[in-house]
Amino acid sequence: MKCVLVTGGSRGIGSAICKKLAIEANYHILINYHSNKTAAEATLQEVQKLGGTGEILGFDVSNYEEVQATLTKWQEANPEAIVEAIVNNAGITKDGLFMWMTPEDWNGVVNTSLNGFFNVTQFFIQKMLRNKYGRIVNMVSVSGVKGTAGQTNYSAAKGAIVAATKALAQEVAKRNITVNAVAPGFIRTDMTSQLDEKELLKLIPVNRFGEAEEVADLVSFLISKKSSYITGEIININGGIYS
């Protein structure tokens, strides 16, 4: 059984990715969630409706021990399963000006995005190296390449993953493992629902927010065999707001 793990797969872009992979990739889909089990189950139902197979896995990506325990238990229960692809999508925002930022708001955001990438990817990387195949896609953000005021914590976390993507890509390329990052701009999801869309449209050359499905299309391509010669890349998907 060949699998793809999507962290933060229950809602928004993560859910769209799971649904897209159900149609386009021949993978059993592991849908990770942290707190919203109902949303994860709804995504799984959609995956099954679209003809895919999957299951939900609850764990906090920022908690190393929890990640290790949950994934080890899953691997032991599924000894034949091979996780060939990982989408590191889990992330949170706690926006605010840096001068007033609390250690909790800094650490929460950095731990989820950056340490989550380490905890999950590191669990599987040796197996991928042994199998001589793998696809790792890290969800970053326009904030991680351009920087965004009020998001110093989020920009720091995503910018660190940008650099880690480039470094890890060089380490594992000889074993047919690609590592890329996708940097969305303003995408219509729960996470952006509080933003003033009318005001922000003035900044976006294509004059609209992106759709989660459009990001999922790009991720699906990077997970596929078609993208074999692309690695260490940060691909912006932001309607021309920044390149």
Rank of each mutant, 00 (worst) to 15 (best):
G210Y: 02
V172H: 04
E171I: 00
T192S: 10
T192F: 12
A181Q: 00
I204Y: 11
K174T: 07
S141V: 10
I223D: 08
L97Y: 15
R175Y: 04
A156F: 06
V110K: 10
N107R: 14
R175K: 11
T102P: 06
G144F: 00
N111Y: 00
S113N: 14
E197L: 12
W100Q: 14
L114C: 12
W100E: 13
Q122R: 01
N119Q: 08
E233V: 03
F118H: 02
R208G: 06
K94M: 13
N207W: 10
T192N: 08
L218A: 09
W100H: 15
F209R: 04
N115C: 09
E171N: 08
E214I: 10
F221W: 04
G91Y: 00
G185Y: 05
N153A: 11
G232K: 14
V145I: 03
A212Q: 12
F221H: 03
Q151C: 09
F209W: 12
K158L: 06
K202C: 09
A156P: 07
F98T: 15
T152Q: 11
D95P: 14
M128E: 02
L129A: 00
L200K: 07
K146C: 05
L114K: 00
A157D: 05
Q151T: 14
S193Q: 09
K132N: 01
T148Q: 15
G96M: 15
T93F: 05
V137A: 02
N176C: 09
V215Y: 01
P103E: 10
K225H: 15
G147K: 02
M101Y: 08
F221R: 07
N119V: 01
V120H: 07
G116K: 01
M128W: 00
V109K: 12
V140D: 04
F123Q: 04
R130N: 05
D105T: 06
R130I: 03
R188D: 15
L195P: 12
E197Y: 10
A164N: 03
G144W: 07
K226V: 10
V110W: 14
M139D: 10
R208Y: 07
R135E: 01
G147M: 06
T178P: 01
V172L: 07
A212K: 09
A90I: 13
V206C: 12
L195A: 14
N138C: 14
A164K: 07
V142F: 11
L97G: 14
Y133H: 02
N88L: 05
V120D: 02
F117L: 00
I204G: 14
R208Q: 00
V172T: 04
T192E: 12
T121R: 04
Q122G: 08
F118E: 04
A156I: 07
A183W: 04
I161D: 03
T231N: 04
I230M: 06
K166R: 13
A149H: 14
W106F: 11
F117G: 00
G108S: 15
T178K: 01
Q194Y: 11
Q122I: 05
P103A: 08
L114T: 08
N107D: 15
K166W: 08
A169W: 05
Y229L: 13
L97E: 12
K158E: 06
T165S: 03
D95N: 14
E213P: 11
A212P: 06
E233M: 08
F117C: 03
A160P: 04
Y154T: 14
N207Q: 12
Q170Y: 06
K146A: 04
V162W: 01
G144K: 02
L203W: 10
V109I: 13
